[in-house]
Nucleic acid binder design. Sequence first.
DNA 1: TAGGCCATCTGGTCCT
DNA 2: AGGACCAGATGGCCTA
Length: 144
Amino acid sequence: MKVNSRERKRMHDLNQAMDGLREVMPYAQGPSVRKLSKISTLLLARNYILMLSSSLEEMKKLVGDVYGGSAAVQARAPAHPALASTAPAAHLPLHPLAQSLHSLVSSSPLQHHSSPGAPSVAAAPQSPHTPAPSSASIHQCKVS
DNA sequence: TAGGCCATCTGGTCCT
DNA sequence: AGGACCAGATGGCCTA
């Protein structure tokens, strides 16, 4: 019983951490929206981090252009294919942070990378060197 | 009814 | 030895 109790507490702590992660994800939350599954939460978090990293790189380039002068055109291409996933899906409510991120990079020509064969849940690349999450992969985590 | 997701129990392994 | 972590098994709940 003691061991079981410890294990139960450990799993509860793990779930609490998972809830904390869900709270900061760009995903519609509320009583009417079903909670993201654990696997979806982890995949979404990974893609979200990749997207934020790309956005940061993009911002660095833009700042460099502003203060550096030339090569503005170069910076207009998404630094990371994950940026393509920032295209707003009309049917999905976006987290405010994700909205601001999108508006930040929306000047870039967004390219729609559809991946028909992709898993229903956010398909994550296998390594940092593989292509970034397919378009809308973040939004694919919507649970009906 | 099948499949997905989850909580719980339990045994094994590793670490302090 | 005791605790933490992990993975497999099992059963319940929910949805398409």
